[in-house]
Amino acid sequence: MLAFVNFYLIPGVIVGSIYALGAVGVSLIFAILRFAHFAHGDLMTLGAYLALSLVAAAGLAPFLALPFAMAGAIVVALVVHRLFYAPLANRPTIVLLIASFGVALMLRSAIQLLWGVQVETYVQGIQRPLVFFDDLRIAERHIYIVLATVVAIVALHVFLTATRAGKAMRAVADQPELAELSGIDRKAVVRQVWVIGGGLAAMAGVFLGIDGELDPNMGWDLLLPVFAAALLGGIGRPYGAIAGGYVIGLAQELATYPWIGAEPLLSPGYKSAVAFALMVGLLLWRPQGLLRGREGT
């Protein structure tokens, strides 16, 4: 039982948190800009590497480097939008998807150019987990990851429901024309979307690095579960995306538990296939997502 919690449930919650943070951004970008942002994974990678530089240069703990990594990723997201997405505003949204595909390529090669291709870690050596109730082992970093994710989600909720800017964002997502007519500055909303999406992506990337290793493909490899999470939640619905992130994270870890007999139910090498299977199943059963998603234009 404790092995189940220690090796399946807790890792599931951790990757679920990471997917949720990434999926919120994908979902918000889709809600406002109406395209699937294919460079989102590489934005995560960028955040992870920005933190790595601070950890290596200033000796900061990864969690202290996090705000700076988020700030850096936000600046890059805004610049990318200004240079590569904004000029295509009047074209079909699929052109933006192609552009983001190119941005993914550019971000990754820039990371390889600046930081190299070898696998990196924030902290060398083995970190001992904290032990509760004799056998429940939780690594300190995992507690911080979950707490920080909860803080981020609550902050997002307060922003969306209690601030003027957040309400404006929801208005643009629901009724773009009406929102524009009522005097909402769409450009400001778009900037805020990149601030939130870029910041949370960097957070997801840093947590991914804290939980394991950094390599230039880490974000691209996460694109499938993150998109699946956003779809599962009904794309364009940030709360749904959070739920979707945890569902996918837990499902892929729990699928490798030896439920029947002694062998893992699913070979760990196929973990990321779980995201795909869930996504396809959902598309067949409820194409609008678990929560009702937005119709595309």
């Binding site: 699937a36 996504m279 396809v280």
Partner: peptide
């Protein structure tokens, strides 16, 4: 967009 994501999958 969904097809694009499915093809990645």
């Amino acid at each position: 967009d969904y097809l694009a994501i499915a093809t990645i999958g």
